[in-house]
Nucleic acid binder design. Sequence first.
DNA 1: GTGAAATCGTAAGCAAGGCTTACAATATAC
DNA 2: GTATATTGTAAGCCTTGCTTACGATTTCAC
Lengths: 161, 161
Amino acid sequence: MSSRPDPDALGFVLIDVARMLRSAFERRIASAGLGLTPGEARTLVRIASLEGSRQFDIARRMGIEPMTLSTYLDRLQSLGLIERRPDPADRRAKLIFTTPAASALITGIRTEQLDLMQQVTSGIGADELAQIHGRLKLLRANLSALEEDDAALTLARETGR
Amino acid sequence: MSSRPDPDALGFVLIDVARMLRSAFERRIASAGLGLTPGEARTLVRIASLEGSRQFDIARRMGIEPMTLSTYLDRLQSLGLIERRPDPADRRAKLIFTTPAASALITGIRTEQLDLMQQVTSGIGADELAQIHGRLKLLRANLSALEEDDAALTLARETGR
DNA sequence: GTGAAATCGTAAGCAAGGCTTACAATATAC
DNA sequence: GTATATTGTAAGCCTTGCTTACGATTTCAC
């Protein structure tokens, strides 16, 4: 039993892959002239699949803080890709919609994404890929649960003190 | 054939998992009182496995720019966890060593890492996990190759112009 | 009904993890 | 010996996230 942590441990590899993926995606989007950062692209795609939701819900779906989403929205809005419309049912809330200008971009994102992933996953069969995909989703769910646990703990500690 | 990109596409899930993993790791390290950021921990672990290398080589192994590594080293050095010794064979270079003070920390990192990964991977069998691990390494290798290709292209474009 | 508490979005500012460009010191090749 | 390549550093930027504090609403308890 080694007492040295392995720099190739699963967690480190995951982080490496994510970092490299992000930077590869960034290079692609840049060279395709789409003018978005990966985070913005991720946000836009998510909005397109939740058309007309309020910001709070989008943030929860994306697993980020509402404030973080708000800054992304500022940027996407200034590019004319999304709209914030007041919610007729709740005047505190705003509903988010994509504009017609966004749809070409969304198609472009999809193309680049598919292309890139095809390169990156070369050498892995489709069925195996599907299995890995499923497992990663499980990891994500576990991590989600963990985050909630920790948040609950922190809350309890603060309240109880 | 949907024309909408899927927010649950493999690439996005990978990035989600990495982000959540990093923040979970951060919470753990913080609550264990280790006083390091995940990036510093990753660097320290890598150095321990490459004891006595020069900065350039460590950076290449980690897949980051030498300058990025340099700032991590500054921090680790100020914490007394590593040393930069002049390379007797090349006065431009410096060799990096961990100090005795680092070894307890490295053990601590390993513990937290194992603990966390056990929680996160609960519900996945050991053999399946090993398979995923291997596949992720393949992804990382593909991404490495891609980065080099892109770098070569950029270089060619600049030189040829 | 009304007053306290929760909720939605925003403002402002910070941290971590990366990058690039420019440069000084040293090595190496011719 | 002079030109070129390499090592590490300085300085400053970007992206992606966070937190804390706040105003405007809405909702709930009474």
